[in-house]
Each structure stands twice: as structure tokens, then as C-alpha cells.
Amino acid sequence: MAAAQAQIQSSPRRPTQVFEDRGQRLWRWLTFSPALAMMLALSVLPIANLFLTSFQNITWADGQQVRTWVGLTHYQALFSDSLFGAGISNTLIFAFGAVAGQMVLGFAMALLCTKIVRGRVLYRAIFILPILIPGIVIGAIWKLMLNFDFGLVNKALGLVGILPHDWLGSPETALFSVIVVDIWHWTPFCFLLFLAGLESLPQDVFEAARMDGAGAWQELIYVTLPLMIPTIVVTFAFRLVLAFKVFDEVYLLTSGGPGTSTEVISFTLYQRFFTEDKAGYGSAMSVTVIFLVSLLLVVALSARRRTGATS
């Protein structure tokens, strides 16, 4: 990036595109600098701080912070940290499982919604609701719903003869339950984007397909899905990013347990920093996560550029 920047700056100054007086240059800076300052002060600076801390141990002596330099120790320790490993693998399982479920369900509901005329706005209003509710409240709702003793889920399953189960308390079903809760939380978001996408598709293509004798399934597979690919890709990326950050529901529902079965990366970070007060090690973990995230973005962007260039 730095090289590219230097190259652009050293190229001969192009003639002014628009007339630009001193007032305009001033306003150009005035309008941009608040955002720039906020991002620098509250994202670049803290990350630099994390980076620095990740090579240090922080201890307290007489109310004074003592920083000792430990080099790469924390990063080496990461590799043997089973919690970190569990955090990453659980986050991946959680993110892909939940997002896949949301995409499929959201698409199905959106498709159904386009088939009706009356009540579409009502359904949309209902389906939006979970998006707006605080994650922690969703956690609370499902902590009640999934309660072993009185939860509605066990009650309902009891009606069809299934014995009550401790969904959040048993290692086999805890992660699955959290995924289901996340699907409940975010399917509406996928639904909303898909509905907007479907509603903006050109109608004449469908009429042409119908004229060509396409049935409902053929229409879906050969017309709707290909046309929806941009929306699907964007929605998937958008949701995946948010799913990687999951914290609130896990905090409330399981706190990472039982054992490490719902240990997701945000929660691991939280524990290192605030429960165990290991600022140095936590910073190393944060830096690693930030690095992985940036890598993911760079890969995604360059993949998009490559496909954009070929198509």
C-alpha cells in the first residue's frame, strides 16, 4: 500500500480538474477531518496500542503499571492455547452454520413473500423485529425459551412426546442451540435483503420464461437464482462478517460453556482481557484476530476484482 501511495504522489501533478480556490481546499479538509480524526484516534491508535502491548507483560505494583518487554512470547503461546483454537473453530462452525441457515430460510421466506400481494408489508414488519432487538435481549428471550424446567421449547417438544433436554447445558447441543438462536435473530435480515433484491428484479424476464413454458422450479433455478447472485453474495459476506463478531448471545446463553463447546473468539478475547486480566496475551490474540480479518478482506476484495475483471 505504501509503495502504491508513493508512486501516486510522485507522479507529476495533474492539472486541476475543477476550479479550486483556498476556500474549497479548506472545506475539503474540514468536512473529512472529523471522520478521519475519529478513525485515527479510536481505531488506528488503539490497534497500535494493542500491537505494542502484545509484546509486553503488564503487571501492577503500588497502583503503578509496570510494562515488561517479552518479545514474541505471547504469540508463541497462542499456538498451544487450546481455548484460542476452540474459539476459532467454534466461531467458524457457528458463523458458517448460522449464516447458511439464515440464507436458505431467508431466501425461502422472501420468495414466498413475493408470491402474495396482500399482507406483504405486515409480514415484512413482523420479520424485521428480531433485527432491531438487542442481542442481549435475544439471549434473555432464548434463555427463557430453552430453559430446562419451564422453557417453551421443551414444553412444545413434550407435546409430541420428546423428553425435555437441557439444550444449553449439554455439550452436544449447546453450540447447535446458539446457532439456532442466531438463525432466529438474523434470518429476518437475509429475508429483508432478499425481498428487496427479488422485488427489484426485472419482471419481463419472468414473463418471458413463463412464455417459454418454464415451471415454478425451472423459473427458480434458471431465472431467479442467477439474477439474485449479486444480492446473495453481498448478503452472505455481510452476515458472515457480523457472525464472526458474535458475543452478546453467547455471553448470556452459555458464557462459552459447557466446557469449551460454545467458546467463540470474541468470548475468548473477553475472558483474557477482563476475567483473567492478561492484557499482554489478550492483545496478542486481538492483533492476530485483526490480522486474520484484514487478510480475509484483502482476499475477498482481490477475488472480487479478479472476477470483476473476467466477467
Binding site: 492539472p15 480538474q17 475543477v18 476550479f19 480556490d21
Partner: peptide, 23 residues
Amino acid sequence: AGLEGISGGEIRIGARVVNDIPP
């Protein structure tokens, strides 16, 4: 009008050269 910069030459309105005068 002054909506585009002038890469070369000169534009005069009345007696004034307007190359560097805002719209």
C-alpha cells in the same frame, strides 16, 4: 463558467482573466 479548471491558455470575461477566479 468555472466548473472545470483550465489546463492551458486564457479565458477573459470583460477585462479580467478569469483562469484563477472562482465561479
